[in-house]
Nucleic acid binder design. Structure first.
Length: 263
DNA sequence: GCGACAG
DNA sequence: ATCTTGTCGC
């Protein structure tokens, strides 16, 4: 897949002030409303719905959306970036890239460390994705430009961010011990460069134990061309009984697999 | 100065 | 993120 807006590439050599300024440009170019080329209701992890009288799937290309999960593994000073594409829940392609890392992890500037390596993996992908699921935040970011938003804008690809912990913003309600399916808005507060109260994402409880131990919720947010409400709906449809959505789990496993071959 | 901070 | 054994529970 080719970068649509190469001028937004996250250059690790930029100064901190330049990085932050680029993020404000990314946020301005980002679309936080639904502009998808598919119906969110068509997202499913089950096989094609239509089959002939004998129950066999039709021998034609599916028109179901192609969704990619993006994740990374690390070794020494390198990143193993993995992109796994699925359609109707089945893997149709896997692509990866191994790239040197030039800067350390800095909260708020993750895209400048991992964005380039991720774009390299996308260039190895031949499938044409309809949606990308990133491990990290999208709009839930100090300047509304987390890695899901940054990469989504560069590729002009609808994207969402799925983070395991909250970077910034304020949950409207306490998030502890919630049942599966529950969600609450994450609103912009003093740390976010957006009008106070702006809904920048949601805490979403994708899984929960029946008793005893409790699982923390996921923090999901729009990357590009997806609304906050649809983001929750998509993540819900992409989860299969585990805390993390399937695209993310598959990408995580593939990244580990590739990494294992390098050591 | 102090606290908070995706992966 | 990564380094890592055991352990609780269905």
């Amino acid at each position: 897949m080719r970068p649509d807006r190469p001028e937004f590439r996250p250059d690790p050599a930029l100064s901190r002030a330049e990085m932050e300024e680029l993020q404000r440009d990314i946020a301005e170019a980002a679309v936080f409303t639904d502009d998808l080329d598919f119906d969110p209701d068509d997202v499913s992890l089950d096989g094609p719905a239509d089959a002939d009288a004998s129950g066999n799937e039709r021998l034609v290309a599916s028109d179901a959306p192609v969704i990619v999960g993006v994740d990374q593994a690390f070794l020494d000073g390198r990143a193993v970036s993995a992109v796994v594409a699925i359609q109707d829940g089945a893997v149709i392609e896997r692509a990866h890239a191994v790239s040197p890392l030039s800067i350390p992890y800095i909260p708020g500037l993750l895209a400048f460390r991992e964005g380039g390596p991720i774009l390299a993996a996308f260039e190895e992908l031949s499938a044409e994705p309809d949606l990308a699921v990133f491990d990290g935040s999208g709009r839930i970011h100090f300047r509304e430009a987390g890695i899901a938003t940054h990469v989504g804008v560069i590729l002009d690809l609808p994207s969402i961010g799925v983070a395991k912990s909250l970077l910034c913003g304020e949950p409207r309600e306490a998030v502890d011990d919630r049942p599966a399916g529950w969600s609450t808005p994450i609103e912009a507060g003093p740390n976010v460069e957006a009008p106070d109260g702006t809904v920048i994402g949601h805490a979403y409880q994708s899984r929960q134990w029946d008793r005893s131990q409790s699982i923390n919720p996921l923090y999901v947010s729009p990357g590009h061309r997806v609304s906050a409400a649809t983001t929750v709906k998509l993540v819900d449809a992409l989860c299969a009984g585990y805390k993390l959505p399937e695209p993310t789990r598959l990408a995580d496993a593939y990244a580990d697999e590739v990494k294992a071959g390098y050591e």
